[in-house]
């Protein structure tokens, strides 16, 4: 297997300061929010790499930088060895861009209500001047809808069907990589199962690679080949699903797994986790998790832990052991 995506030391800082005049009048400094901080990982071809984390952990920001909707502040995203932010050859850039597509969370907001479904689906091809004859019908059938649906408008479909349309659109330009940002969180459970099954089938049939962004641990375990856990913009643990769920190494991962409600443990009494995610504008020094961590010692307050291998797992914790 070869590496499709390689992300190195990726950092994204947002300026959330008040306007210049207010800052001068109120004598306030700039406020910078570090959404993603020094994240590195690789995605192999034809696999599913999942990013999990709570809100504000930076998972969507990484997805947006990967597809080129946001520029990295530091570090680079390489897709097949091409760094899109630095590459100057227009042809290469265009080729790589059509290899990446995205599926969005909200199937109600991501389809233009004034366009017919056929036009929505073929846009990625038409926009590049490609030939879209018969494409909409083929794609609609591929995602389990009828060819005639191309003439309809998005409002005529249910949530699950709309998400299928979103999948069809993502497939139009024959992509290699699809970034799925919470593709099923807006759907009901029974419909979620349909969409997840469809995505698994398409991956096998078309040799796709997914970057799967989700906050739902059970969904991630079902879909992913490798899981990266994010906390406050930092990658704290990376492992395959079995290792992550049976022997989580990072205290945050352990806390997250213990807190997730599970259907197979009826009437479970949990000791709920303490505290909440800290303010990303003033993150704690050292390890970002130390104020909530049961293992924290002085070194955690001073030094940010590097990602290191413990067995096959990569983990960023001073105290993780094999």
């Amino acid at each position: 297997m070869s590496t499709l995506v390689s992300i190195r030391n990726l950092t994204r800082v947002f300026d959330v300061s008040k306007p210049w005049l207010n800052r001068v009048l109120e004598n306030e400094p700039k406020r910078l929010l570090t959404a993603v901080s020094d994240v590195s990982f690789e995605v192999e071809e034809n696999t599913v790499y999942a990013l999990v984390g709570e809100s504000g952990s930076g998972k969507s920001t990484i997805g947006k930088m990967l597809v080129g909707l946001l520029r990295p502040s530091e570090g680079e995203v390489e897709i097949r060895g091409v760094n899109l932010a630095a590459e100057s050859d227009a042809k290469t850039v265009d080729q790589i861009r059509s290899d990446i597509q995205m599926i969005f969370q909200d199937p109600y907001a991501s389809l233009n209500p004034r366009w017919r479904v056929g036009d929505i689906i073929t846009e990625p091809v038409v926009a590049r001047g490609g030939d879209a004859t018969g494409l909409a019908a083929k794609l609609l059938e591929q995602v389990g809808l009828a060819a005639e649906d191309a003439q309809k408008f998005p409002h005529e479909f249910s949530g699950g069907q709309r998400q299928r349309i979103g999948v069809a659109r993502a497939l139009a330009s024959n992509p290699k990589l699809i970034v799925c940002d919470e593709p099923t969180s807006a759907l009901d459970v029974s419909v979620q199962a349909q969409v997840l099954n469809l995505m698994s089938d398409l991956k096998d049939d078309l040799g796709l690679t997914y970057l799967f962004i989700s906050h739902d641990l059970t969904v991630v375990r079902h879909m992913a080949d490798v899981i990266g856990v994010l906390y406050l913009g930092r990658l704290v643990e990376e492992a395959d699903p079995d290792a992550l769920f049976t022997t989580p190494k990072h205290p945050y991962t352990q806390m997250l797994l213990a807190a997730a409600p599970r259907m197979d443990q009826i009437g479970r009494e949990v000791e709920p986790p303490k505290g909440e995610i800290p303010d990303p504008i003033n993150p704690p020094t050292g390890c970002a998790f130390h104020p909530r961590c049961p293992l924290a010692t002085d070194v955690c307050k001073q030094k940010r832990p590097e990602l290191r291998y413990v067995g096959t797992t990569r983990v960023a914790c001073h105290h993780a052991e094999g």
């Binding site: 199962a193 349909q194 997840l196 059970t218 769920f245 599970r262």
Partner: peptide, 18 residues
């Protein structure tokens, strides 16, 4: 149709339609 934490990677059972 719930992806159970204990189950493996087999296909999810789905209810057809909506």
């Amino acid at each position: 149709s719930m992806p159970m934490a204990s189950a493996g990677k087999e296909r999810l059972r789905q209810i057809p339609g909506s």
